[in-house]
Write a protein that binds this DNA or RNA. Structure first.
Lengths: 214, 214
DNA sequence: TCGTTAATGCACTATCTAGTTACTTATGTC
DNA sequence: GACATAAGTAACTAGATAGTGCATTAACGA
């Protein structure tokens, strides 16, 4: 019989549904920001009912907060896995610069989410204890690296770990987040493979010149 | 007599009204982004009627485009006034780095507007012939500076003007646009006068080490 | 003084959107 | 196998929000 395949009763799976919602929300928030994101769009893309979003996450803002927390968790976890403590200082620094660039490149939502959160003065991140802890660990890791390099005489002394972290992030982040206006202003395709390679090389040079002893 | 000052007939002044609208729009767009901005709020803050906005600017998007164009015009005009061509190359470069930082600091709306425009893939800026021309002049100015410094032997050779421009902007822009999440992650007040001074010094060092001959 | 044009104001609408109410259906446990 | 609980759905609402229709009034030249 060719009877209409009657919307199958659909197996129930709370975990899977939450994951689908989070994934859809990440995309939508990244694309349109917190304000521009549409709850209905998230529901549709998650193949869930809008009611489910409120069932699991209470409100659009709490959902955003959760998406943001997960995004920070992901990058901080990946950074820890670099295991910089067991590398030669120069190599470790190069690894960090390259990792940061690659991560932004492969996870463009991260950048847009952070932008959106800053537009809202970080009011969601403030509430997250988890992010707090992860950040601490991250800064410490870079501080140890600087200390080690200094002791070995390959890094200059007196470099502040926070300023360095900000700078490493900045030179990759800015290039990528402003790629659309950048393409117009500089009349150059900033996203071709060659352009991306060139930028990574330039960034590497910038940081090594800044940090390494003369 | 204490008669109610009967809403005075209000002198008509097309120019002044447009300027008030543009100024209010800049604030509102910077605060909430294109999507989050409310036309009613702009009207109220401009002490104009909402009808006026549509009378002069046709739509919310066209108003945004105009605000954005004006913002780019302003910074590019200010840059030209630096008159870098008549300064010693090193001093000129320092001047540019300091100017860029100061401009972002004193015009925080500029940053937020650019962020918002990039969220929308620069579709408004694409239409602007003016911005196109101004950008060209700006890149040329820095290219001349690099050339001059190279000839005098104070700058390294082979530095790309576009990459340098992007980097100078990045290290200031990122710090300021992400100051809210940054404050949380680094557990440090990034906006105190001392912190701002320190950042400018760090940025100056970053750029000079990158550009100057060893 | 008159008439044309441009500036201004008010009230309205069509549409959208976060969040909810009230319901149905699957799942696993005793 | 029935009961309790959690997963899922559809239709609705109250409030916003971009954009308009239309009437009114100032400015200014003839």
């Amino acid at each position: 019989m060719t009877s209409a395949p009657k919307a199958k009763p659909k197996a129930r799976d709370a975990d899977a549904t939450q994951k689908r919602i989070l994934s859809a929300a990440k995309k939508e928030f990244a694309k349109s920001g917190l304000g521009g994101a549409r709850v209905d769009v998230i529901a549709e893309r998650a193949k869930a009912n809008k009611r489910m979003i409120y069932h699991y996450f209470n409100s659009k803002e709490e959902l955003f907060q959760r998406v943001l927390e997960d995004a920070y968790s992901d990058i901080r976890t990946a950074e820890q896995k670099l295991d910089l403590d067991h590398m030669d200082p120069k190599a470790a620094l190069e690894t960090l610069v390259r990792f940061t660039w690659d991560y932004y490149l492969k996870n463009p939502e991260f950048i847009t989410l952070v932008n959106s959160e800053n537009l809202h003065k970080a009011k969601h991140l403030k509430k997250s204890e988890l992010v707090h802890q992860l950040s601490q660990r991250f800064v410490d890791m870079v501080a140890r690296l600087l200390e080690r390099g200094e002791k070995e005489g390959v890094f200059r002394s007196g470099i502040d770990a926070v300023q360095l972290n900000i700078t490493i992030a900045a030179i990759g982040y800015y290039y990528l987040t402003n790629r659309f206006t950048g393409t117009i202003i500089y009349e150059r395709d900033l996203m071709s493979p060659e352009a991306l390679d060139e930028r990574l090389r330039f960034n590497m040079e910038t940081i090594m010149r800044l940090v390494c002893a003369d």
